[in-house]
Design a protein around this nucleic acid. Structure first.
Lengths: 171, 171
DNA sequence: GTAAAATAGTTTCAGCACGAATTAATATTC
DNA sequence: GAATATTAATTCGTGCTGAAACTATTTTAC
């Protein structure tokens, strides 16, 4: 088997592990991984816009909308339309949501996190760097789509600008 | 941000990239990534059982069934119930399926694969090892959860030696 | 002021993904 | 041979996912 195939097989296993963990979470505490991620974002930054949450956790707005629907049905999150700009929707945890978030487990496997934090510092760094590099290499397709960029040294030049903090103040 | 959080953010990006690629594939050639993976498996090993395919690509049997449904509707794959053991279903590509598989692009980003194969040998190995290690660390929860099954050589399952770590001699 | 563009969010639609329950067939045990 | 267990595949229900189309609103351009 080629190395790239091996890599992708390993990747599939990781993806599956995350999905399974999410489903187990749902059984245990009634929240899936993505739902927990959204709630953490809202809890950390009350009033945050849906768009911002989507960017933070690397999901499309449509997906976040559907997740918010479920969270609102469960009475864990509250949507409040802004009065000054009625396009915007601020997000807040309900009391019940805050309580649940308090003693909710980690969104991604606590087992994994525990193990990971036990590694040597340099090993952690190395793993992070590798993952980020893979992410960057995969993202490259999007950049290819726009012919404007000059590609000299790919590994160094490819930059993905995902979430610029809102500087919509002036435009 | 903690290192483990950074790692998981990068992971989310990779997962998203794979999903986006799959959807783009579907638009381009009418086949998603998982569909293509199934077809490759069937093409490589005609008559293969559904169960085996599921294992090969790390998916549950239920998922493979639904994928096969779509492939059969598109007339790309043919299901043939075994006569000797009628529980079993053998899978075969139709002629149309073979044609399409021939000039189908790579299931995972060709951009990525190209870039990856251009890396130095040691870098590839290192990336593969890291991914496998992450996969293993995440998988550990399953093993922890069912201590009943493991009788003697748990050590073999849990602590299989990962490829010689990092070739730091070349940094 | 009005037309055009941009923005935030939603809806719709199709596919992926899995566990649990189910069906059908085969294997095992007594 | 009949009861029991196992196996292969499917069905069902639910959630995640994003593109595309849509609504409503705000901003920009003329």
């Amino acid at each position: 088997m080629n190395k790239d195939e091996e890599l992708l097989v390993a990747l599939r296993k990781v993806i599956r592990a995350i999905d399974l963990r999410s489903k187990q979470l749902n059984k245990d505490v009634g929240l899936t991984g993505p739902q927990l991620l959204v709630m953490q974002n809202v809890g950390k930054d009350p009033g945050i816009m849906a768009r911002q949450v989507a960017e933070n956790i690397t999901l499309s707005p449509a997906t976040v909308t559907s997740i918010l629907d479920r969270l609102e049905i469960k009475q864990l999150v509250h949507r409040v339309r802004s009065t000054e700009d009625k396009r915007k929707v601020g997000l807040f945890l309900t009391e019940k949501g805050q309580d649940i978030l308090q003693d909710a487990p980690l969104p991604f496997q606590e087992h994994f996190t525990n193990r990971f934090t036990q590694l040597e510092e340099w090993e952690q760094s190395q793993m992070v760097a590798t993952m980020q590099r893979i992410a960057k290499m995969m993202d490259a397709q999007n950049i290819d789509a726009s012919p404007l960029l000059e590609v000299g040294n790919l590994a160094d030049k490819v930059e993905v600008d995902i979430a610029p903090t809102t500087d919509k103040t002036k435009k």
